[in-house]
Amino acid sequence: MTDDDHLPTYLLAALRIAAGADPVPGRVSASARAAFALRLPGAVVASPAEVGPGVGARSEGRPAMHRFDADGLTLDVEVTVADGRLDVAGQVSPAPGPGTRIEVRTPGAGSSRVPSETGHFAVTGLPPGWVSVVCHRPGRAPVATRWLHVRD
């Protein structure tokens, strides 16, 4: 039973909570509280459709490819780790109409870019951890990728 696999983990967690051993650090709670501001009401959430085979984000300089599809839009997202920072590059297709804006978000900050005519965009020097790409389109719901975890 699946229950069987997880119960020991949960029992250990319960023991530690009761003992007050290893309480949750304040910075973890602070980011949890701040996460509420990251919601995008009405956004279409895009799940990863396919992942480039055998390419790991762990290997320095080698990009991890992620493809997301939703609402007639494809977002290809490539994350490279260099010197402990993340570079995010990608393409939105079909080619974006006027007024389209790409936002690359981490829990701490967002960077907006106007994609090129061919739909390419790039943001560099992000902190490692969680990343999401949002495509804002005039008059339509934004499309947001599910959050990706990338660190070296």
Partner: peptide, 10 residues
């Protein structure tokens, strides 16, 4: 933990 909250947000 942060990932779980982000999953909740999405």
């Amino acid at each position: 933990v942060q990932g779980a909250w982000l999953r909740m947000v999405e």
